[in-house]
């Protein structure tokens, strides 16, 4: 009962503090502090309610237990991370996005192909591609190769659609200038089309970061060697060791956020000229 009252009190204080902070003139510190306080109060609510109602650990472990498990199992978590993220997701991400860019350049050369691929690509990008996971596991075996293949299939079309749109985003004026300079086809690609496709390409790259992690993890549900985040999650759920599962989810969250953050850093460096990034 006491912890429940404490939770309520903490929530009210945090919320009041946030309302006060958001009424101040915004600066960088406040913009970071408000979500941090909100996140912290969610954690406190979680911890407090779990303790107050004596929720068994097999249903919802409190954050403190998850933290302890996380620290105790760092070695296992690291092995899983390497297997799933570095070997499966990252290699698939690079292959898938890279080949999508190459195909997009080819498609851009032929307007006929472009008109055919854009609607189809949009259609395929909306499909539940995750469903191909059992097929790829059958073809490429249980190792990380099948996970990479699923990731390639998942990221290819969203990336392709974005890059094709980006390459087509140059206007007549710009192309005419290059024509008056007597630029070759490849010069036009390098100096005009690829740079102006970059904002679109990075949009695709950002969407694909999450997709690649999802693909690699879900593919492991269909069969994997005895390591990997998806494998660990599905087996530990079976053993009702939910604290380990949550620790894996924390790892996935950190990996996903870092991945997204790195890509957005690249975006800021490359597309500094784009209106929404100008300072």
């Amino acid at each position: 009962m006491i912890s429940l009252i404490f939770v309520l009190l903490f929530w009210c204080c945090a919320w009041g503090l946030n309302i006060y902070l958001s009424s101040l003139p915004p600066n960088k510190g406040i913009r970071v502090a408000i979500p941090a306080i909100f996140g912290l109060s969610l954690l406190v609510i979680w911890e407090g309610t779990v303790r107050a109602f004596d929720v068994p650990g097999v249903i919802l472990p409190p954050p403190s237990t998850i933290g302890v498990t996380f620290v105790n199992n760092l070695d296992i978590l690291w092995i899983d991370l390497v297997q799933t993220v570095f070997k499966g997701a990252l290699s698939g991400y690079i292959i898938g996005c890279g080949s999508a860019i190459i195909v997009a350049i080819v498609v851009n050369r032929y307007p006929f192909l472009q008109r055919g691929i854009l609607p189809l690509g949009n259609f395929v990008a909306a499909l539940p591609i995750v469903g191909t996971a059992p097929i790829f596991v059958m073809w490429f075996g249980f190792g990380w190769q099948s996970k990479a293949a699923v990731v390639v299939a998942m990221v290819f079309f969203p990336m392709l659609v974005n890059v094709v749109q980006g390459l087509a985003s140059t206007d007549v004026m710009q192309r005419d200038v290059l024509k008056t300079y007597n630029a070759t086809y490849w010069q036009e690609i390098w100096k005009l089309k690829l740079p102006s496709a970059m904002p679109f390409a990075f949009n695709g790259l950002k969407i694909c970061t999450t997709l690649s992690l999802i693909g690699a993890i879900v593919a492991e549900f269909f069969g994997s060697p005895i390591l990997g985040m998806g494998f660990r999650i599905s087996t530990e759920v079976g053993r009702l060791a939910l604290d380990v599962v949550w620790a894996e989810i924390v790892v996935a969250a950190i990996a996903g956020t870092l991945f997204f953050w790195i890509v957005s850093l690249g975006e800021e460096k490359v597309t500094f000229w784009y209106p929404s990034h100008r300072k």
Binding site: V130, T209, T210, L213, I214, I217, V218, F221, M229, G230, I233, S234, V237, L242, V245, W246, E248, I249, A252, A253, G256, T257, F259, F260
Partner: peptide, 12 residues
């Protein structure tokens, strides 16, 4: 919340 591969949560 979207950078978390949420489908991983599904079994749990």
């Amino acid at each position: 919340s979207q950078t978390v591969p949420i489908l991983a949560l599904a079994p749990m």
